[in-house]
Design a protein around this nucleic acid. Sequence first.
DNA 1: GTGGTCTAGACCACG
DNA 2: GTGGTCTAGACCACA
Lengths: 129, 129, 129, 129
Amino acid sequence: MFELDLRSRKPIYEQLVDKLKELIINEVFKPDEQLPSVRALAQDLTINPNTIQKAYRELENQGFIYSLKGKGNFVSQNNGVMDTQKIDLVLNELEKLIQEAFYLGVKPSDLIAVIEKLKAPKGGDEYYD
Amino acid sequence: MFELDLRSRKPIYEQLVDKLKELIINEVFKPDEQLPSVRALAQDLTINPNTIQKAYRELENQGFIYSLKGKGNFVSQNNGVMDTQKIDLVLNELEKLIQEAFYLGVKPSDLIAVIEKLKAPKGGDEYYD
Amino acid sequence: MFELDLRSRKPIYEQLVDKLKELIINEVFKPDEQLPSVRALAQDLTINPNTIQKAYRELENQGFIYSLKGKGNFVSQNNGVMDTQKIDLVLNELEKLIQEAFYLGVKPSDLIAVIEKLKAPKGGDEYYD
Amino acid sequence: MFELDLRSRKPIYEQLVDKLKELIINEVFKPDEQLPSVRALAQDLTINPNTIQKAYRELENQGFIYSLKGKGNFVSQNNGVMDTQKIDLVLNELEKLIQEAFYLGVKPSDLIAVIEKLKAPKGGDEYYD
DNA sequence: GTGGTCTAGACCACG
DNA sequence: GTGGTCTAGACCACA
């Protein structure tokens, strides 16, 4: 289910954060759904539970999940409220990457194609819901 | 000129790499132009020269600058050759960020606007405005 | 095990890179095997850990090893993909050396003998004999 | 006549040494022929005379040229005597490169082809004369 | 424990 | 003057 690259330079816990974020964004994990327990996931991936914990804590900090003591970790509601601060961060990152892509010779139309491709994450049109 | 965040989790030399890359891409530093000397920049930023060295060396590895022993560091020509491997990396990163942007409520048209804005790095670019 | 010439014009870290590359190519260090830790090797060779680091990082850039933060440095798999760019560099170097060998009086048959001797790096290799 | 890459990592004087060595080996400069004067060559290549000097001194050390005070620099006779020490050095270097070539996927037959190609440097068969 | 970053300061090589 | 290498020693991040 998770394809972690144990050989990547990127820390395992960061890879986990990215994967989980992706699954949440694509609603594979739906709002208020419970995530796998730390221990279960650790055993599953044969990874140190501390590493899983760290990933979950990071996701909590970023607002993607919430944790209930003694119950587990759950997917946050993606409330319609726009977190402008986070949006600015993401857009800033995006600008840098877009410029780099241009520098490397990518054409604007290619990028627009990427956007079109990703427009409908699950089949509908629910970017915000 | 450079705003480094010494407290950031991101290593100083990486921040430097990013900043310099950006300046090169935006042609603030033009091809074959000499970059600030290691020592000069180190003194400027009150940072250890070794750290600057590391950043410059990384930029050299990435093909953005070249280094001449007794002379200095210089901006590489952006040869038209498409480095497909690097392009793939960048596009991959872009996809993740775009999805995250959608999740945060950004609309596709907003992203396309960003692309349009950045389309012509030569002509209408305002870094400080 | 490693014979470094601290007086050589060639930097220590480059000598290290060459030695380690050789050991990897000859499968003295096998794929996915862990290399000596930075500190251990540094103590062994009575050399500064930073210098070892530099060598390991260079080997990583060249694709011979990969590095895991809390774990160590490991030998990369030699994927069958032909890196034509690197091959060209090596062949170019080889041509120069072959010409020089001819100039010094070495006969073509001698060189072919060398090639035959090295043909099978797995089977009949004696590093110390 | 000389194509120096002023942007290469390799020091200019080393490039000069290589080029001149090549020209001598290929008998473009014949035994006892006078080489261009330091000043002339420096002007020609718009390079610091010190750099030329350094290259000539290096070639002298390696036995490729000899210098007559007040007269100039001249190509050495390639006497039939085999400099076994130098040959060993070169063969050693060659072995390492050949192994690396194998590791990169080059086939023995390819290397033999290179040798065949270089066998006759100027049209005859005079490897040693 | 591992690798990674950073500093302070010395010395060498190049042009 | 420039970049490049190396050391000694400190501190952080990861698993």
